[in-house]
Design a protein around this nucleic acid. Structure first.
Lengths: 325, 325
DNA sequence: GTAGCGTATGAAATGCGTTCCATAGCAAGC
DNA sequence: GCTTGCTATGGAACGCATTTCATACGCTAC
């Protein structure tokens, strides 16, 4: 297969000139430019990008670490990332890690190995200290609040958002509050739990173990919560649920069992998903698409300028009042 | 930063020996291996993968083209792809093309430029003939039936599946059949449309323009169909809807307007989504996860063996009988 | 004894484009 | 007339690991 050297030979110019044409650099006379382009055409030349990457030390590629692409939360963040990447002519490598720390570490190693120009960590099994060790090799942006670290972050204040949601419920007159959470030990889940407990304590609200349900990841998990309502000695008046799809499961199943929403059990969701809009679920929108888009813009800027000063970008959230509370 | 040459110098061996250690090749004595490993450790050496890619002509990366990651259909296929890629220690580049042919073409150019080892096209704005031009540069697998082309495919028989669904409806006694489709000119959409028309004609069933609705991509589009039912002179008895989320929108909105499912209007969905299970929607499962997984396995096998013989893998589908028909 | 094979090791070629540096012609500026 | 600066062009160094080929030692087999 043809290479730049052969193009140069046939076009009667130096490889430098060919490279200049290829990269639209100035200082190439029109006749030579034409000769090069014609030769490229003629030989059906294709640049070997691996040589370009080796030579430039850049790849125009950013890796994204997330646990599951097939969850609303992550696919929306990915949408924002992918949209911005396309605009910037950047490539995204997707690592669906399933929270496997080893796999996530491999992605950071890719940064060290110059395979990628940066890493966006949407959610991670890794400790911030581990990530910090790699910041010398290129920019890293996480979509979680890690405090002031040597890498950037775009984040929602989970504590404040959750607290806000709870306040909203309390102001509506609810006192018995249930809580459906995803992974018990997720980093944002942990924050929400502490907000939950602090809120109940501060306002002297009742707290029952059975009103807190973990591992609510799918629609079906929400439905299971609805079914479990019958067994409860005392029922919560409202559930705050991290994910409208799970809230939808809860609501639909509860209705099947004759419960009225919100009279018999109210529900507040998260993420402002289409299904939530459909079921008129009161929810907290934390602008996931924007989170992905912002994360990409930050990392792109850092790659472009070489600026390693970390950026901490707080996103806002908004309670969308609808009919299930 | 250290490179292989420096490792060799300091460890007192040749670069060849270092490379052998790095790649676990045989014929390296224990003392030398140890010396190399120790030097690597000491200098905190990281291999420059761009040099490896240049040298080997491989990158261990496959690109995936799909229009939107944030649609159930595609995120499930992606899940299957990503899972298999992880097992095979392969990287996936995600191109969210938004059906932009130029962007999709750029991905094929990446194959030509040796940036990637193969391409999986989940859905595309490109013509098969265009894709065929690139098969000389590496394996391509599409997730659509393109007939017998010079590239592989993993596909569902959309015609047969849709026909089957219609037959199921007819056997249940429905005669007035409505149809909600996604993009009117999508390749699988076109196939389903012809199946739809052929079926109605063959069984002499009524066909009304207003019973066919296109651009039903989101939940809200299904809801809009439900709202439009009032304006119809005559209502269909059942809708066949390409996507359970759209069917869900239709069903939930219809119920809001006092319609009973399936008595007043029945609904058959597609894709066997969690929301469909929740709402007890009769649906056709066409094994999207398996499609992604199979696509990756095929392309991986072709990369591994260098075999360019295209594979055409037909997947089966199954009607899941539930309560909305 | 010597042909043959497995182990061990390194020199050098190979993959290929970018970019720094040097050179040179020509025009504008003073 | 001489300096300065812009346009144009190419040689050569640089980025870095893989792999083929040649060489050499030691041991077994006949």
């Amino acid at each position: 297969m043809a290479n730049i050297k052969e193009i140069a030979r046939i076009a009667g110019v130096s490889v430098t000139t060919v490279s200049r044409v290829l990269n639209n650099h100035p200082y190439v006379s029109e006749p030579k430019r034409a000769a090069v382009l014609q030769t490229i055409e003629q030989l059906n030349y294709a640049r070997n990008m691996n040589a370009v990457h080796l030579s430039t030390g850049r790849t125009g590629t950013v890796a994204v670490i997330l646990p599951y692409i097939n969850l609303f939360y992550f696919s929306v963040v990915m949408d924002g990332l992918a949209h911005e990447a396309l605009l910037a002519q950047y490539r995204l490598i997707l690592c669906q890690s399933n929270y496997d720390a080893d796999e996530e570490l491999k992605v950071l190693e890719m940064l060290r190995n110059k395979e990628i120009d940066g890493v966006v960590v949407v959610s991670t099994a890794l400790q911030p200290e581990v990530i910090e060790e790699y910041t010398g090799y290129g920019p890293v942006v996480t979509c979680q609040n890690n405090g002031e670290r040597r890498f950037s972050s775009v984040y929602i204040e989970h504590y404040a958002a959750f607290w806000h949601g709870l306040e909203y419920l309390k102001n509506k007159g609810y006192r018995k509050i249930g809580y459906c959470e995803g992974r018990q030990n997720g980093s944002s889940a942990t924050i929400r739990q502490s907000a939950f407990h602090a809120f109940l304590t501060e306002h002297n609200l009742p707290c029952r173990q059975e009103w807190m349900v973990f591992d609510c990841l799918k629609e079906e998990d929400g439905a299971a919560v609805a079914r479990s309502l019958h067994q409860m000695e005392e029922r919560p008046e409202v559930f705050i649920v991290t994910g409208d799809h799970v809230a939808a499961g809860l609501i639909i199943e509860a209705r099947k069992h004759g419960l009225r929403i919100p009279q018999d059990v109210a529900v507040m969701g998260f993420d402002n998903q289409p299904i939530g809009r459909l079921l008129d679920i009161t929810t907290i929108d934390n602008h996931l698409y924007d989170m992905g888009a912002a994360a990409f813009r930050i990392i792109h800027e850092q790659i472009r300028t070489g600026n390693r000063q970390p950026v901490y970008r707080k996103l806002d959230y908004v309670i969308i009042e609808r009919g299930t509370v």
